[in-house]
Write a protein that binds this DNA or RNA. Structure first.
Length: 345
DNA sequence: TCTGGGGTCCTAGGACCC
DNA sequence: TCTGGGGTCCTAGGACCC
């Protein structure tokens, strides 16, 4: 979906039309913490983009419409769109709230028919939700994903097997799936700027530098990706975290917030009918130094008290030397379903 | 410029077991 | 007196995704 959160907000508020819309943290007249989640194209004209500190966005365009994300609404719209998409696919994989992979192998004989199908999907989503999306068609997930990012908004990019190398070669390595900021920088330092550079680079050097992933990157650069389109299974962890409005060394305040976060995690856990065995606390100091500290209990539990008590104990060692804390979080993992009756010995 | 919040997966070291 | 090999699980940190 194109600029999903911002597009949904514009749809719900016609009065915003034509104005820059920024969804994210509260800018608080330029003093706000947090980042931009999504912004529309009018806001992008001011150089605003997702991930940018909200304070910086404010400086660039104080007159934009600034909104806190309304996840309930986005989830609702997302669910309807996902149901539409599902009907078109042999295999379906949701990818966040606003992206999805569709394996349509059995529905189409060739790329021409696949293109027609993509056009039909775009039409149906626009008819039902009055929102636009950008679609990439390719021989595998990797190529389809990169193709979908190639032409936005309201784009459709088709890359056939024969075109894959020509399509990928000139693109910066950063566009590859799983090549983020850090890896892109390392690759650039090795003189690898484009996906084409990566494709012709010596594999063993890549393996030396990146381990098993080095070989993966090399395959990706050739457009080779054997990953299945598959629905995600059971969830692996549930966590909540918050950044304080101002960094604090009032540890009783921090512990209160930790308890509240524990409550929210617990509520979610119970909704999912899950038990947990591991609790992990996350602390970020004012200098952005971040630590996690976890403990695995002896048995599965879903008791709030177990969660909160363990979290408090785990957080304790970080409360020293009056160091100011920026963020606190708690996560449970090692989950199992509480639906099946477990035999306890 | 001052960096959110929800997640997933991988790695490396260490404890422990047989 | 020096030190195997197979395995599992736990922990902390880091990179990546939306």
């Amino acid at each position: 979906m194109d600029q999903f959160y911002a597009a949904v907000e514009e749809r719900e508020h016609p009065e915003f039309r034509g104005r820059p819309v920024v969804v994210g943290a509260d800018p608080k007249d330029g003093e706000g913490r947090g980042v931009v989640s999504t912004c529309n194209y009018a806001a992008r004209e001011f150089g605003i983009h997702s991930g940018m500190p909200i304070s910086r966005a404010w400086k660039r365009c104080p007159d934009a419409v600034y909104l806190r994300p309304n996840f309930e609404l986005y989830i609702e719209v997302s669910s309807r769109i996902m149901e539409i998409l599902r009907t078109y696919a042999d295999k379906f994989e949701r990818w966040g709230l606003d992206e999805a992979f569709l394996d349509v192998t059995s529905k189409v004989q060739d790329f021409e028919v696949a293109t027609k199908l993509a056009e039909e999907i775009k039409r149906e989503i626009h008819r039902e939700e009055r929102l636009t999306c950008s679609i990439g068609v390719g021989p595998n997930k990797l190529v389809a994903k990169i193709a979908s990012d190639f032409n936005k908004p309201d784009g459709l990019t088709v890359v056939t097997e024969d075109d894959v190398k020509r399509f990928l070669a000139p693109l910066p390595v950063r566009r590859l799936l799983w090549v983020g900021k850090k890896t892109a920088r390392k690759l650039n330092e090795m003189g690898i700027k484009t996906i084409g550079d990566l494709a012709t680079f010596n594999v063993s050097t890549l393996v030396d530098k990146f381990g098993a992933m080095g070989e993966q990157y090399h395959r990706f650069a050739h457009g080779i990706d054997a990953l299945e389109v598959a629905e995600r299974g059971e969830i692996q962890s549930i966590g909540r975290e918050i950044t304080f409005e101002s960094d604090t060394s009032e540890y009783d305040v921090v512990l209160k917030r930790l308890d509240k976060l524990g409550q929210r995690v617990h509520r979610n856990l119970v909704d999912h009918q899950m038990l947990f065995k591991t609790v992990t606390v996350k602390i970020r100091y004012e200098n952005f130094e971040t630590h996690t500290h976890g403990k695995t209990l002896r048995a599965f539990t879903n008791r709030l008290e177990d969660l909160q008590k363990t979290a408090r104990i785990l957080a304790q060692p970080y409360f020293r030397e009056a160091r100011k804390i920026r963020l606190i979080g708690v996560r449970v993992s090692n989950l199992t379903s509480s639906r099946e009756q477990k035999t306890l010995v």
